[in-house]
Design a protein around this nucleic acid. Sequence first.
DNA 1: CGGCGCCTTGACTGGATTCAACCGCAGTGG
DNA 2: CCACTGCGGTTGAATCCAGTCAAGGCGCCG
Lengths: 230, 230
Amino acid sequence: MSGYARLTPDEEALLRQVTARPVAVPARAELVRDGEAAPRPQVLVEGWACRQRLLADGRRQIVVVLLPGDPIGFDLRRRSLSFGSVTTLTPALVCEAGALRERAASRGTPPDRETGLAAALRQAREMEEIWLVNQVVRLGRQTAYERVAHFLLELRERLAAVDRVQENRFSFPITQEVLADALGLSVVHMNRTMQQLRRDGLVEQRATAITLRDVPALASIADYAGAHGP
Amino acid sequence: MSGYARLTPDEEALLRQVTARPVAVPARAELVRDGEAAPRPQVLVEGWACRQRLLADGRRQIVVVLLPGDPIGFDLRRRSLSFGSVTTLTPALVCEAGALRERAASRGTPPDRETGLAAALRQAREMEEIWLVNQVVRLGRQTAYERVAHFLLELRERLAAVDRVQENRFSFPITQEVLADALGLSVVHMNRTMQQLRRDGLVEQRATAITLRDVPALASIADYAGAHGP
DNA sequence: CGGCGCCTTGACTGGATTCAACCGCAGTGG
DNA sequence: CCACTGCGGTTGAATCCAGTCAAGGCGCCG
């Protein structure tokens, strides 16, 4: 799951053990309350979730989408700051993972040589920061069409990293309403934008799966430079 | 500067020593190149800077604004990911701060008891993440008017933390073009929105300083809940 | 004076939201 | 069995917030 760093055999064993007995959680379940100072560390094993924030009048903004393999709530927060609540978008499988954090923190002689788990968690944080930056650029400076293209490419790359993409086709279990809340659009405009992408032959959607039919074209539209630099 | 955690006397001495001889840097200077894996750790002592990303066609999005006291480039990145480049927005004073990072990393017995400096840097990262989340919500779900109000309140709070606000008045040395690139607006619309805020008696601008004349009203417009929770 | 950076203004355009309605489908219960 | 309901997707029309284009003003400085 957290394939971000080389783990020692016993770290891998611990990871396997921790994720062996996942708990089923329905859609729209809150995994971390907003502002919680000491959330329970968890790993999302199956299903999609998100970090989101609500405005007083009901508007919702999804800050990042969380996919299978992503760690949740590993950072202890000093004060109770509003990082947004973590909520499932689909039915999901989740694991309690306090043991991972403890193991990551122990073992270190001085921190100059950190454990594999600590490195993996650090890397996971880094990736989440990248997704946040991507999100800011999408929302701030891209059109609806570009935003969707960019977001789909990011999803493809992240899902490919956990081996859930086959020939640019992957499961896509969220409604257009959720997509709209992620990309800062209205549902209606989200719908029209998806239709445009389909009409242009760039994506194909069937049931709960999506296929990116022309990744280079999408990348050019979205000005997308994958995670591996320029 | 990094008043985020209690420092030991010698940590404070080191901090003072490191920030004693700042280097002057002109506006529009690049402090960290985009994608740089091992940036030089620095502290912004005076002036404003930002993390930004450019699109291929020249559009610019400012991801976060950096203010006096903020650390820059302290995180070692594994791969060369695009976090955006760090660039000064005004003439600035900057300090090389590698010594701080080394000191923060050493000294730890096991990491269960981290140094004051390490705690401060961790806290600084947390705050930056909050600002990112705020930015996403502003760009995704708020109108121009709300965005500006929200952003000004965030600036006030951050500047107050480093004692640069007097009676809701603080230095505001950036152009409307920069503001526009931060808030995802065009310069023209930025201008009109500022005018509206002035006409409504919410802010007052003279030269390079700004006064928030009605913080509660601004907070209500922007749905702003300061850093200290609800 | 002339040029430049920044702010300002007006007119026009357009991307996106809103409101409202309709459709197809799956689940559900009388 | 089938009306009823709810959800998600789809459409059209009207509206509006924000972008674009273009021009002018003002202060500063060489």
